[in-house]
């Protein structure tokens, strides 16, 4: 059984936000215009978070891309009244959009605020509609959405591997953000395989998890800057 995880090397990361754009394109994330954005209703499945501490000129600043952590003990799953969000056997925390009732309990429970809500029905100008990704659903209004580790890519990769009569290789399945990352700061793979890149990196001295003390056990692991 796989346990998919991601490693983000902050020393390589340049804060370019390619992951954000790649995710938008891959996952049919709604276009939130200026007015709605000003109200804070943007949707980002992965978002670059700034941590800027200290006072001028002695500033400790850090930029940190934050996808869904796909926690081992997610706070969101427990609270969903209809079981619309759940963790599958491979540890991916998924949402079934057609079951979600939009109570937004999971969004408030998630300590990483990774979940977004569709305040309105997502709309695209008709000139653009055909350019939506055909592998990912278009969410309706009133449901919660978040990063799925590009699970649809896993389905495709599995299918492809099976057609080619071989095992699924780790490079078969990578999420869009990892694929696009220009400074190769993101790694993706099977944490259960002790020799996979992500496993090896996750055991590095620089490795840390976000809000580790909450015991959510994220499957997204960061490597801190510096030696």
């Amino acid at each position: 059984m796989h346990k998919w995880g991601m490693v983000i090397d902050l020393d390589r990361c340049s804060g370019c936000q390619t992951c954000m754009a790649a995710c938008h394109a891959e996952n049919n994330i709604a276009i939130i215009g200026p007015e709605e954005s000003a109200m804070g209703r943007t949707i980002h499945w992965i978002e670059l978070l700034p941590f800027i501490e200290g006072e001028y000129p002695h500033i400790k600043a850090r930029l940190l891309p934050r996808p869904c952590m796909h926690c081992e003990h997610p706070a969101c799953i427990k609270v969903c009244p209809v079981g619309a969000t759940y963790a599958n056997e491979e540890g991916i925390v998924g949402i079934v959009y057609s079951r979600c009732i939009g109570c937004r309990y999971c969004t408030t429970a998630c300590p990483y605020t990774v979940r977004s809500f569709n305040w309105y029905k997502p709309q695209w100008p008709k000139e653009m509609q055909g350019s939506l990704n055909r592998d990912v659903s278009i969410r309706g209004k009133g449901v919660v959405e978040k990063c799925s580790f590009c699970h649809h890519r896993l389905l495709k990769a599995r299918e492809k591997a099976k057609v080619e009569k071989r095992e699924l290789l780790s490079e078969d399945y990578i999420p869009a953000c990892v694929q696009a990352c220009p400074s190769n700061a993101m790694y993706f793979g099977d944490l259960n395989d002790p020799f996979s890149t992500v496993s090896i990196l996750s055991r590095e001295r620089r490795a840390f998890k976000l809000l580790e003390d909450l015991g959510t056990e994220p499957k997204v692991i960061y490597l801190s800057e510096g030696m």
Partner: peptide, 23 residues
Amino acid sequence: MDLGRPDRMLNILQYPHFQSPLL
């Protein structure tokens, strides 16, 4: 009224998830 999808509110009865305090 706070639900994003009030049309699906019966999901609470149809697919109850008893871990949730809301239930």
